[in-house]
Write a protein that binds this DNA or RNA. Sequence first.
DNA 1: AATGCATACAACCGCACGATC
DNA 2: TGATCGTGCGGTTGTATGCAT
Length: 321
Amino acid sequence: MRNPDHNANNSNKKKLRKGLWSPEEDEKLMNYMLMNGQGCWSDVARNAGLQRCGKSCRLRWINYLRPDLKRGAFSSQEEDLIIQLHSILGNRWSQIAARLPGRTDNEIKNFWNSTIKKRLRNSSPSSASSFSPNNSDSSEPREAMGGFTSISDHDIMTMCMDSSSSSTPVQAVSSLCNRFDQQFDPLPRLENVYDMTDFATGYNHMPPYLTQVGFDVGFNGNHGIYGTVQMGEEDEIYVPPLLESGSLEEHTVTNNISGTHTNDNNKHKNNNNTNTTNTTNNNNIEEDNIFGNENYWDTENLRMVEWHLEDLMGNISSSFS
DNA sequence: AATGCATACAACCGCACGATC
DNA sequence: TGATCGTGCGGTTGTATGCAT
């Protein structure tokens, strides 16, 4: 390790120290933080009598001195969760750390770079890729690299409409869950069994992790199976089904994201402060024509995906024991 | 015992972003 | 509107430590 004094300040100069923290510095910072709490870090450094920049104090506190840090080796459960979260979030260490209580982004980053990455590299290519699809060094999550990563309303609508074309409600629900499950593959799950004898019992046997992330299905006598995804208390994606004839009802997204999402063939109507849904027939539209357009996701939509991902991940991490 | 290498991890650096002036 | 400051994030570096030879 670095010599704690190797950048020590000259007595005449107000040069800030760098390098390792000495136990005395730790004690000063710890005492100050416990007495005064977090404030302006420049003030912390000055008032605690430390010859350190505020940035250094912040880092030391967050990564080492904070009382709620867990420290110690990562459990296998934490390790699994890190791998799965990384497959979705990429190198967004702070977001991963936010879902692992007592762990810091720096700690997770180091753990990833020193242990997990190597382990994945040493494992067979096939298993490595299935274990962590994003085990490249890229800092981009998969959806940003053009791959199919997170659950977006686009994904949900697609799978809902696919499933709604099934011949029976049971199959429709089963298909809906399976499609959702496929997209959710990298995420923590509790079970993966769909034993549905009819819609009612099928509903009761929906995989818990689906309901935990706010995914739900409904049955409407007139319109068949549809899907919804709850996003917070007021926001919901509602996906009317594909009609029996193969035509498509216009689907409506109700949430609090500003902006309107449209393309030539498809309209997402954004109704702020309402939960109403508009359903108008829009016949002769093939699904591929609707979602096959790679330019479908404009900038606004990408922000939307990001926002949904945050909500989903929040739900997942809170349910992951 | 000495040396070299690999690993783990603390800490720095540069950049981005928002708030304030 | 631009400058400055504070903060947060991800990438990278440097060094202590453990292990093999």
